[in-house]
Structure formats: C-alpha cells, structure tokens
Design a protein around this nucleic acid. Structure first.
Length: 798
RNA sequence: GGGCUCGUGGUCUAGAGGCAUGACAUCCGCUUGACUCGCGGAAGAUCACCAGUUCGAAUCUGGUCGGGCCCACCA
C-alpha cells in the first residue's frame, strides 16, 4: 500500500468531521438496551463572540472522556447547547446591530436577538466542531429556544408549587447602566481614586460628630450613625440623636461591632443604601428606608435640589454645599476598591425593589450532603463548593430587568394577587399572553422581568434530555458526568445541583470533572487588555486540531496550564511520526493475512509491552487521568515501538530468507496488533489522524464504520511473557550501547563492526542466542562472541 | 483576614519515602531501504527556604517566603 507522502490535516479534519456527522457516529442509540448509558451534561458555551483557547482546553478534556467511554462500550449521550439568553449575548447583539435593546419594545428586541442568533449560532458552533468535539450536534438546545423557555418556566412553577418561589421588596444590587438587578456573582472589584470627606454632623447638644465618607451625596439617605461599642471617644453619644448636615434629619447614634475604630474618624453613617453593611444594619436595627437613587442612577425627589443629577454630579454639588456651609472639615484623596458590574463596568448601587427569589437558605445541609455524594475529580474542588454553600446568606434572586431572556410566567391584578401560568401553555410571554382559565374581564398586569440566565442554565441536564423521546428520558437521568471549569463551581455547578435537589431531591449527575484554565506562556490569565489572547481557530489553521488536543491532553484535571506554541509543534511532530510509522507498517502489511504462527521472541516482547500499555491506559482513562494515558502512549510509541521495535523488525521484513519460515508472518502479526492498538489508545486524544489511518486499512478488517465506535483494546494476560520481555530488554540494551559507541566515534549507525563480545551469564547467553541473527542485523556486526561473566558488559570492535 | 492550591534543569512538565520523567531550547555526531516535522549521543536540577520524623525526604510533619484561585472586608 502506497500512502501519500504527507498527511494533510486540514483536508482530513474537514473530511472526517463531515463523515462523522453524516454517519451519526456520535449519536446516542436509544434502541440499544444492551449497552450501559453514559450521559454527559455538556456545558453550553455563552454566545458572546468566538471561542477562546480556554474553551478549546476544557472542551477537549471532556471530549477525551466521552470518546473513551464510547469505545469502552458505553452508549454515550453527549448533546450540545448554547447559552444565549444572557447579558453577554444582549451586549453582542447591541454591538453588532447597533441598537439599544432597552429603548425599543420587548417583542422587537427579542426578534432582533433571535434573528442575530440564527445567523451567528452556526458559525459559533462550528468552532466546537473544529476542535473535534464528539457531541451529537443534532441533539442541540439553545437556552432561549421554545423548549428551554418551557422547561425553565416549568421548573419555576414547580418550585412555586412547593412554596419555594416568592416575591419581595428588598434591597438588591443594581446595575444602573443595564438597569437590572444583578447577582453577587456578577460583581468585580475595581480600584478607583476617591475622596474621603470629613463631614460635620451635630448632636442635639450641638457637639460635633465628624463622619468620614466617600459618598456625601447619600447624606440625605442617612438613617443612623454608628460607632464601635468599645470606642471611648463616642461612648457618651450612643443612644442619643444626631442631626445630619444639609438635610437636618434626626437620626439615632448606635453602636455596632462592625465599625472599625481606626478607619476615618471611627464614626460611620448608615445610608439606605451605600453598601452591603448598610443593608445588614437596616435589617438588624429595623431602620427606616430613605431611597435617593433611581434605577437609572439619577437622584430622585427626596434628594431635594440634587434631583435629576447623576450620583457623581450630586456628589460634587454636595461637597460644594458643604464647603459653603462650613460643614466640610477636611478631604483626603484615597484609592479604594468598589464593586462594579462585570458587564457594564459601572459602579453598582443598592436599591430597594421587588424581585423574585427562590428560598433555599434553610437547605444548606441538604446541599452539603448532595456535594458529599458527588464524585469529584479532582477531589479538592469539592471544598470550593462546600465553602460557598456554607457562606450563603441571601436567597437566590432570580429576576432580572432585561428584555432578552426567559420571561417569568406570572401576572398580577390590582390587589397584587399573583396568577401563575398553566403548565400546558408554556412557554408563555406574559406581555403577550394571558394565564389559562382566568376570565378576560379580570384586569391583569403582566410581569415584565425575565429569569437570571443561571436559572435556566441550572436546568441544563433537562434542556438536553427532553430533546429525546419520552421513553429514553429516564435512562438518561441522573446524568453520568458534568464537565466544567473551576471558575463557575459557585454558579453553574451549584445552581444546577441546588435546583435539581429542590425539585427532584436527587443529584443531577454522578461525577463532576473540573478543568483548569489555559494561561499565557508566563502563567498569567489571558485577557484582551493584556493582548495575550490566543485564538484556537488560528492554531488549528496553523497546526491542526489534533495537535491542539494533544497539547491539552498533557494537563491534569483541575490544573491550569500555560499555553506555549512550541507545544503544538510537539503535537504536530507526533502526528507526522504516527503517519510515517503507519506508512511503514501498512506497506509491510499489504500481503498480510492472519495465520496462526509461532511468534518470534522479539514480537512477543513487543506484544507483552503493548499489553502492559493497554492496561495502564485503560486504568488512567477510567480515573479520568487522560494525561497519564497520553504520557504512557508517547513513551511506548516513540521509544519502544518506533525507535526500537521497528528497527529490530526491519531485517526480518526485508530479508526473511535469513530467518525462520514464519519469521516475517510473525512480525506482520505484531505490526498489525501494535499499530491498531496504538491508534485506538490515542484515538480519544487525536480523533482525526487516527481515523484517517484506521480507515485506510483497519476499518475494513474490523468491519467498523469508524475507529471511534470500535472496541477499546482489551488487556489480555496471555501475551505477558516474562522470558521474552527479558530477552527483548537485553537486546535493546545492546542496541543502545552500540549506538553510543558509534555516536562517540562519529560513525554512521550503518557502519559495520568487526565484532561484539558479550560478557553475560549463562542464562542470558541462552536467551540471546535465540535472537543472534536479529542482533547481528541491528548492530551490523560481523561476529558476536560470548564470554561468561556475572556482570553484563559489551566489548565492541570496529 | 479565611479556605483551597502550587513552587522540580533555561522554559514547560511527570513523579508523592529508596539512583529525579518527558518535551522544547542548547551542544556534538549521523542522510540507517517510514520519517531532517528524522535518528544517535552529550551537557544541564543542592526538587523555593528552614527545622523535624526516618537507616533514608523532592515526596511525610511544622514553620518561613513567594505565586494562583475562591470567599470575606472595602464608611
């Protein structure tokens, strides 16, 4: 068989991708009852531009597992989805279509988003196909499609029925740019320049109380003044009344341990609301509510002459007024950290508003038990979830004030009574529909809020499972595996687990595997601002998806790995080597027909080592340790197979006349077995090159459509042959010594040697005499002599 | 401040009680009937630091220093 000189990865990868899809190689076979199901809760990537290297990294890792399980004989359910109902997508649409989605009617906004997605989604998904994901792309959901909206709304109704969903007016973190409530999870810290202002409050006895604040515009929202209970300076004022400057409001002076005596003047004003401590004090001391800031970030009527100003404008104006009134003692420039919305980049406010919540603070124990039951890989990632659960102190706020999202399926009447949608009418849009069974004459106000995106993606197992026929759905749940990166353990993993526990009292999956991040070559996080972002599609173009995956396979689960382009070169070399070795093997297998022959010792040596490799790789893959499997493969492939065995086998293949009658047949058998098994062992990591070679020769022999649904090599004890292994190892030792000798003498490896004298034990001699012809051929020595000795050594003469 | 995690040749990485693995880079040599994207060889590491346990520590224990992630604080 004449194989092309070079392997064209670009052509081959496109070809096999189409082949797999057309032949449904990765489809879950719901009719197959013999195979055990292995279902995977694939993370739906957020549609927010294009894939980055971190995606390629973690998605490849889960794909190794999926491919291994499939070959191991599992009926693998591996769906795909996209998360496209969040702020990220909204932002992308606004940028691309140059519209402000908030300023147009909701139905219009949704239409624009959906049209945009229809165009962009396939391009986006293509990136995932290109890295060789073995998902069944015909089982695909989008978190905004009809089915997902239906499921998301249904889970809400189920929780409402259980009394877990409630609506309440409460302080909430608010993004004034996007004008929506946001979760704690969506906040990032940002250091900004600010000014600490020392402002004069007075007691009723006209003593001065100096308060340090960075937010003087909130004086009007001040509802109390706090000092530390142990602070002797102010002890006498505790329990008395203070009068706020400019507004002249009477507020109580209270003592609380949260106050720091060292910071500022040691007196704090508590406003509704400046920060999260204010909320706690507001609740704890049942303080009144004085809101000054509107949802759009401007000041409201209660702010008096500052009404209509943005918060920062009001701050400047307030400072001016304080100066005029001689109520500003001093100012100090400081740098401090404020929380900003991660998407808007704007400082957040805390405002009081009506939101929907899921009650779960009393379920911490249940969640901790659920976490205990999960199979964590790596184990230590469990701590992150447990710490998060233990630290929860708010119920789950699920409503968001945006246009593009899954609508909350409720209506209200004038009295505030809540009307829920009927399950049969889902998905609904309260703005356009009415609840089933409620007479037309009842005037209803539709809820215009949508669910937070985590609420919907927290049902990901169901978004996928419900795309399958009813009778197989039970088989698929709970899922076998949740693969994901460590940055969203507190969010996606937690919410999915919490939601499934609350509704079904079960865990959504058996195991979770947590992948790390791809970092830049110096171990720093990649980001656009640092300019160190690597685009995987460029790397695939330049090298190949297989090379990219080969690099990924070098990482351990949970570990971050610096990306170095040179590592892709290594992958590329492995692909070339695999191609060339295959070229050689298949050339010699052209006339091969299986026939039972007594195997030559060196072939037994190879096959014994191969069996050990099979055993190790299988164990490693079973423990999700694909990197160890890859390492073992590499070691065997380069050192045992190509560098040594192939060289040893050459003489028998080219000059069979010098050996036993069946010596060539024996070598052919070994070559067949070794190459086929090697291809299979690395197929999960490098799906394209292995498929290409498999299809050239083995597919027909094994009568399989694809290597990826062929049988994983099975360890067979019968090939283990200690004697052959020892002999082979001795031969390799001799070969290495001879190579070193020639190298040091600057000789060609083809240079002839006049003699080699082997000093060894009698038993070693017995072994080596059986492969004398092979040793002569590989060392190109005219004469080989033996000398009896306890120590093994060589004397070489050229 | 708390939790988790890591610190190994120039770079990246494996190893988790007993001569420190591999890749890339470096140096020297070889065109061996699959492969110069190759082959052979060499050099390069007091395994962050200190103390302890042990016959023996990169590996276990305690501490120090330094990264990373998450959480808390941020008037």
């Amino acid at each position: 068989m004449e194989l092309p000189q070079r392997y064209d990865a670009k052509e081959a990868e496109a070809k096999w991708q189409k082949f797999w899809e057309k032949n449904k190689i990765y489809a879950y076979n719901e009719k197959d009852k013999k195979k055990e199901t292995y279902s995977i809760d694939t993370p739906p990537p957020t549609v927010s531009g294009s894939m980055h290297i971190g995606h390629a990294f973690s998605y490849s890792q889960q794909d190794f597992v999926a491919r291994y399980k499939r070959m191991k004989g599992f009926n693998v359910f591996y769906p795909f989805g996209t998360d496209d109902n969040g702020l990220a997508t909204e932002k992308l649409v606004q940028k691309n279509r140059k519209v402000n989605l908030r300023k147009i009617p909701r139905t219009e906004a949704i239409k624009i988003c959906l049209e945009f997605l229809k165009e962009e989604r396939p391009k986006f998904v293509q990136d995932w196909k290109n890295i060789g994901m073995s998902c069944d792309f015909s089982v695909m959901y989008s978190t905004i499609d009809d089915m997902s909206r239906k499921i998301s709304q249904r889970t809400f109704l189920e929780m409402a029925k259980k009394g877990l969903a409630y609506r309440k007016e409460a302080p909430i973190i608010w993004d004034t740019m996007f004008q929506t409530a946001i979760a704690q999870a969506e906040l990032v810290d940002s250091e900004i320049d600010s000014i600490f202002n020392d402002i004069v409050f007075r007691t009723e006895g006209s003593d001065e109380l100096i308060i340090a604040t960075t937010r003087p515009e909130l004086i009007g929202a001040c509802v109390a003044v706090f000092v530390h209970p142990k602070d002797k300076r102010y002890r006498k004022h505790v329990g008395k009344t203070a009068i706020t400057p400019l507004y002249n409001a009477k507020v109580p002076v209270l003592a609380d341990e949260k106050v720091s005596m060292e910071k500022g003047t040691g007196i704090v004003m508590c406003c509704t609301f400046g920060d999260q401590t204010d909320i706690e004090w507001y609740k704890q001391y049942k303080l009144p509510l004085k809101m000054l800031i509107n949802p759009d970030g401007t000041m409201n009527d209660a702010a008096g002459r500052y009404k209509g100003m943005k918060a920062d404008e009001a701050r400047k104006a307030t400072i001016e007024d304080l100066k005029q009134a001689k109520l500003l003692k001093s100012q100090k420039a400081i740098k401090h950290v404020v929380q900003i919305g991660e998407r808007s980049g704007q400082p957040v406010e805390i405002i009081n508003s009506k939101q929907w919540y899921i009650s779960y603070l009393d379920k911490k124990d249940m969640f901790l038990k659920a976490s205990e039951k999960l199979g964590w890989y790596p184990k230590h990632m469990k701590h992150r979830l447990d710490n998060w659960i233990k630290g929860l102190n708010w119920d789950w706020s699920i409503s968001r004030q945006r246009h593009f999202g899954v609508p909350i399926p409720v209506w209200y009447d004038k009295t505030g009574k809540i009307y829920y949608a009927d399950e049969s009418q889902l998905p609904v849009d309260p703005v356009a529909d009415r609840p089933k069974g409620v007479p037309e004459k009842v005037d209803l106000i539709p809820e215009t809020d949508v669910f937070d995106t985590w609420f919907t993606s927290g049902s990901s197992p169901f978004l996928a499972i419900e795309l399958m026929p009813k009778e197989t759905q039970e088989e698929l749940f709970p899922m076998s595996l949740r693969p994901q990166a460590h940055d969203i353990i507190n969010f996606w993993l937690f919410y999915t687990m919490a939601k499934t526990q609350l509704i079904h009292r079960k865990n959504p999956w058996k195991d979770v595997i947590i992948s790390g991040w791809a970092l830049d070559p110096h171990g720093r996080k990649m980001s656009k601002s640092k300019g160190n972002v690597v685009v995987p599609q460029d790397m695939i173009q330049k090298y190949s998806a297989d090379a990219l995956r080969f690099w990924t396979a070098g990482s351990k689960l949970g570990d971050d790995m610096p990306f170095q382009e040179k590592d892709l070169v290594t992958g590329q070399k492995t692909i070339t080597k695999l191609w060339n070795a295959s070229k050689f093997v298949l050339m010699h297998l052209e006339d091969y027909r299986y026939e039972k022959v007594e195997l030559e010792i060196l072939d037994k040596w190879l096959l014994a080592k191969l069996q050990k490799l099979v055993k190790k790789c299988t164990e490693h893959f079973d423990a999700y340790e694909y990197s160890k499997a890859k390492q073992e493969f590499e070691l065997f492939f380069w050192q045992v197979f190509t560098d040594n065995y192939l060289e040893l086998a050459k003489d028998r293949l080219y000059n069979p006349g010098k050996y036993n009658k069946t010596a060539r047949k024996s070598a052919q058998f070994a070559l067949y077995e070794a190459l086929l098994n090697l291809l299979k062992l690395i197929a999960p990591v490098m799906p394209y090159i292995t498929e290409e070679i498999y299809q050239l020769y083995f597919a027909e022999k094994e009568k399989e459509k694809s290597i990826h649904i062929s049988h994983w090599p099975e360890y067979s004890e019968s090939y283990i042959d200690k004697n052959a292994e020892e002999t082979g190892d001795l031969v390799v030792g001799i070969l290495q010594t001879v190579r070193k000798f020639k190298s040091e003498k600057s000789l060609s490896l083809k240079a002839e040697l006049s003699s080699i004298i082997i000093s060894c034990s009698a038993s070693q001699r017995k072994k080596l005499e059986l492969v004398l012809q092979d040793i002569k051929a590989i060392t190109i020595a005219e004469d080989i002599e033996f000398r009896e000795s306890k120590e093994f050594s060589l004397e070489i003469k050229n």
